[in-house]
Design a protein around this nucleic acid. Structure first.
Length: 595
RNA sequence: GCGCCUGUAGCUCAGAUGGAUAGAGCAACGGACUUCUAAUCCGUAGGCCGCAGGUUCGAGUCCUGCCAGGCGCGCCA
């Protein structure tokens, strides 16, 4: 049914927001370094800088062959035994510098600046890694940053103020939203939040397919149900919408317009279509609202016909010859721009195709000043991407400015049994029902805790049976626990931490350091989620942060006798709370004070 | 047939630019609450990363071929 919500990706488009950061990482990094203060300097960047400095010094002293400074790779080793950061530059450059990797690493180590004692341990390991362990007390700076920035912590400047539109859901107004739309809604909304956090000026838009055959079918379905209500026996065709909601709409139309059946049939069907679409759209709007999704703009497809935009677009392409007449139909020459074949825009019968209005629609988007446009589609529409990308390019818009997030459809199960899903047949589980059963938070988190391109089995029974034991509550519980600590601290009159808590340097227990290290990763997680268009990264980060906090909580007391340590730990707890709250809000999930 | 996506622990899924001993949750088993919320924690067990080649000092990750599943291939949306 839904055209847009259904989804796939294609090679050229993957360039929109590159999957490989290498394409943007280098320029991004340097530009950032030039904007002191606009970005949040992370521990990882400090490490990168020092490695680079070591290379420069080694080259200057003649220990290394002089030449271009290579891109420095700093990674976070999986095992704590390998320190907090490791660089593989010695391995990568061994050939260029004509020296065994371990020797290169040794030279880097000898030139590594650590006068301030930022690193408590530096060593060469394995085939030529240079491992560095940050002094536990140095992590306190991360916490100061979190506190001074508050909910701003984690923001980045990737977008640099560019206007970006995320068009998502865009379900046809022919029936209620189902779970598949829910996934698209959750992904699109979270993506929009993450992009806003990454410096984009974001607009959420819903494209209403209120034109075309399906709307006429909707009108006809409603009209036939109206006849039924009037006691007439009608044959209800299989290609009409079977769902019970059509009957309800028919009743509403009969109340509003009692004489409708005595009207001219064409006019009556048209009226039915318009009313049915309005009623359904209002329901969709309400469902989305309860799901926590609000679109800034609801854009009507019909308006593109009414304003002449579709005709104008086609006409201009006829002028250039990119739209041409063949076999009685008008074709768009998309194959010249990467599509498999040319596509029809005006059929033999004179009616335009969906593609025709989509061309005008996308021209309209850019004409409104958007630098970038992201469409969120269901994966079954992936074959549609090349032709639309071709149309965008033919319209004089750089291909990188258009991208599509494909969301795999949801495989809905109930107790292991697959639930059939088809709007036309009327057999489907609505988003509304899912929200009623498991709650919007649970539903959103399930949608967002997997890569959007991996298939999703959503078992309603399993979700409910996990009532008390699931990742959403796990994260929310961490938030509630912290809130509870502060409530008790307030009741006991325990003095709160100061603006920049000096005793944060007391947080040197392994469990505390692990929490701080995780907090330090947050800005990069948000940035990567934006860069790769992968909101699930935030969900996984939050689970990890919550786990580390729970582990800390079980091992150490926050409200302890030592007043300095107590303040430091409150300071830590509040930092975690800020991140959990902020991260959950990116995902559109509530962060409760108590559970 | 062609194209795209997916294939990692019994189940659901992560896995960063190609890095060191592949991770988490659920399920299973064994422990931890007179102490800030046990919706938690600690531990044990669980793996030819679909298969086979290739590139590389190094491959779950890149290349090629194959297998399995999903989706697409319309003058539908």
């Amino acid at each position: 049914m839904l055209s847009r919500l259904s989804s796939a990706k294609i090679r050229p488009l993957a360039r929109n927001l590159p999957r490989r950061p290498s394409q943007t990482a280098a320029p991004r990094d340097t530009s950032r370094d030039n904007h002191e203060g606009r970005r949040q300097q992370t521990m990882k960047h400090l490490m990168e800088t020092r490695v680079r400095d070591a290379i420069e010094k080694a080259m200057a002293s003649g220990a290394l062959l002089p030449g271009e400074i290579p891109g420095v790779v700093v990674e976070e080793p999986k095992s704590e035994d390998h320190g907090d950061y490791a660089t593989t530059v010695a391995l990568a450059m061994a050939k260029t510098w004509k020296m065994p990797p371990r020797n290169v690493a040794g030279i880097l180590l000898a030139h590594f600046g650590n006068d301030d004692g930022l690193f408590s341990r530096l060593e060469i390991a394995g085939p030529g890694f240079l491992n560095a362990t940050v002094a536990p007390s140095a992590w306190a700076d991360v916490l100061h940053t979190v506190h001074s920035l508050g909910s701003e912590y984690g923001k980045n400047t990737l977008g640099a103020g560019q206007k970006i539109m995320v068009e998502f859901v865009s379900a046809n107004p022919t029936g209620p939203l189902h779970v598949g739309h829910g996934r698209g809604a959750a992904v699109g909304d979270a993506m929009a939040n993450i992009l806003r956090h990454s410096g984009f000026d974001v607009t959420r838009e819903y494209y209403i397919n209120d034109s075309g055959r399906q709307i006429r079918t909707l009108g006809r379905s409603t009209y036939l149900r109206l006849k039924e209500l009037a006691g007439q026996t009608v044959e209800f065709p299989g290609d009409c919408y079977q769902g019970d909601y059509i009957r309800e709409i028919a009743r509403a139309v009969r109340e509003e317009t009692p004489g409708i059946l005595s009207m001219d049939e064409d006019a009556a069907v048209m009226l039915c279509a318009r009313r049915a679409a309005d009623i359904i759209l209002e329901g969709i709007r309400q469902d989305l609202c309860d799901f926590g999704v609000t679109h800034d703009i609801w854009f009507s497809e019909q308006s593109l016909y009414d304003s002449g935009a579709v005709d104008a677009a086609l006409e201009s392409f006829k002028q250039t010859g990119q739209v041409y007449l063949k076999d009685g139909a008008w074709w768009f020459a998309t194959s010249a721009l990467g599509d498999e074949k040319d596509r029809v825009v005006i059929r033999q019968n004179g009616l335009t195709t969906y593609f025709a209005s989509d061309i005008a629609y996308h021209q309209n988007k850019y004409a409104r000043g958007f630098d970038k446009v992201i469409d969120v589609w269901g994966a079954d529409h992936h074959g549609y991407i090349p032709r639309l990308a071709a149309a965008v390019e033919a319209s004089g818009i750089a291909r990188e400015r258009f991208s599509v997030i494909l969301v795999k459809l949801v495989n809905l199960l109930r107790g292991g049994e697959q639930v059939a899903m088809s709007t036309r047949s009327g057999e489907f589980v609505t988003l509304r029902e899912v929200m009623d059963e498991v709650g919007p938070d649970m539903a959103r988190f399930i949608f967002l805790s997997r890569h959007h391109e991996s298939p999703l089995d959503f078992d309603l029974e399993a979700a409910k049976s996990q009532e008390k034991d699931n990742p959403v509550f796990y994260i929310q519980y961490a938030h509630a626990r912290i809130a509870s600590i502060f409530k008790l601290a307030g009741e006991r009159g325990i003095p709160m931490f100061r603006e920049k808590e000096p005793s944060a340097r007391l947080l040197t227990e392994p469990e505390e350091t692990r929490v701080l290290k995780k907090m330090a990763q947050y800005p990069e997680v948000v940035e990567r989620a934006a860069l790769f268009q992968e909101p699930h990264r935030v969900a996984f980060f939050l689970t990890e942060l919550a786990a580390l906090f729970h582990a800390f909580y079980n091992q150490h007391r926050v409200l302890t006798e030592d007043p300095e340590l107590c303040r430091a730990r409150l300071y830590l707890a509040e930092g975690v709370r800020v991140l959990v709250h902020g991260g959950l809000s990116l995902l559109g999930v509530k962060a409760p004070e108590h559970m």
